[in-house]
Design a protein around this nucleic acid. Structure first.
Length: 273
DNA sequence: AACAAGTTCAACCGCTGTCGC
DNA sequence: TGCGACAGCGGTTGAACTTGT
């Protein structure tokens, strides 16, 4: 037995919204605010499910939405953010004021994808199509490669870093991530990504000006608070100057990470500022 | 003018994570 | 601890619109 549906579908309107429905929704939210979407339709006198109301409000009726064509700057920012975050449309949208995740997703699929393909760039890897083909087997996911990984040549250097403070977590080595995000693609993007266990929120900022990495558990060994701490002290860095993208936050190193619910950190847990 | 093919984008669907009981 | 309710997310669909013949 599955979950009950979110609403009584047979009594609900579907499809395009009418002007009257829009007006009802807007006036209800103006006077009551965004609240419980499930009960909102009934309260507002709408024959729509809460989900549909939420979508309509967020994507089209919100007063702070910017309508019209995307600017060239927005284009470039979307491409850069996509190269870093992948299809995390809500995270991308958080960096573009007045734009919605749905709008950006549509724009990506109808315009940017084609634009990149016409330039010979694979929109999913952001690499030259020929190059992507030859190295495809090495690319597992969009990831970040830290500066030290690109400069540390010797195994000793890598090993000594991994062993810092008895690390049981390890970072992916550069050979398997042939730099999905390279400086030449993102010269004006300042991405600040921090790993911060919940109990260190107070001071993680000063400890780690630039940290952008993926962390794996080694042999399933649990990562202790010490581990998380040493990661922040390490400051593996990826730094793109000037366009002020600041993903600074409590990435899922918290309970998900320590509890090893997922093997790889999920970027949905990123908190955008 | 009529039709087909291609494109766009609003809306839906199903899934996941979180929260409260 | 398990379960249901809920919000939110990303993928997909299909109606409306545009362009080509």
């Amino acid at each position: 037995m599955g979950r009950s549906p979110c609403c009584e579908k047979e009594h609900m309107n579907k499809g395009a919204w009418t002007k009257e429905e829009d007006e009802r929704l807007v006036s209800y939210i103006k006077s009551h605010g965004e609240g419980c979407w499930r009960s909102l339709p009934r309260a507002a006198g709408l024959l729509r499910c809460g989900k549909s109301c939420r979508l309509r409000w967020i994507n089209y009726l919100r007063p702070d939405l910017k309508r019209g064509n995307f600017t060239r700057d927005e284009d470039e920012l979307i491409i850069k953010l996509h190269s870093l975050l992948g299809n995390k449309w809500s995270l991308i949208a958080a960096r573009l004021p007045g734009r919605t995740d749905n709008e950006i997703k549509n724009y990506w699929n109808t315009h940017i994808k084609r634009k990149l393909l016409s330039k010979g760039i694979d929109p999913s890897t952001h690499r030259a199509i020929n190059e992507a083909k030859t190295e495809e087997k090495f690319v597992k996911d969009v990831s970040f490669v830290s500066k030290f990984e690109k400069t540390e040549k010797s195994e000793d250097q890598k090993q000594s870093r991994k062993n810092l403070n008895g690390l049981s977590c390890k970072e992916e080595i550069v050979e398997y991530y042939p730099v999905v995000v390279e400086e030449e693609m993102c010269t004006d993007l300042n991405l600040e990504l921090k790993i911060s266990p919940p109990w260190q929120k107070q001071n993680h900022k000063e400890r780690s000006p630039y940290t952008a990495s993926r962390f794996y558990m080694e042999n399933g060994t649990e990562c202790s608070s010490e581990t998380a701490k040493c990661q922040t002290e390490d400051s593996s860095s990826i730094s793109y100057s000037s366009s002020s993208v600041d993903i600074s936050s409590s990435i899922g190193v918290g309970y998900d990470f320590l509890g090893l619910k997922t093997r790889v950190l999920d970027f949905r847990s990123l908190e955008m500022k």
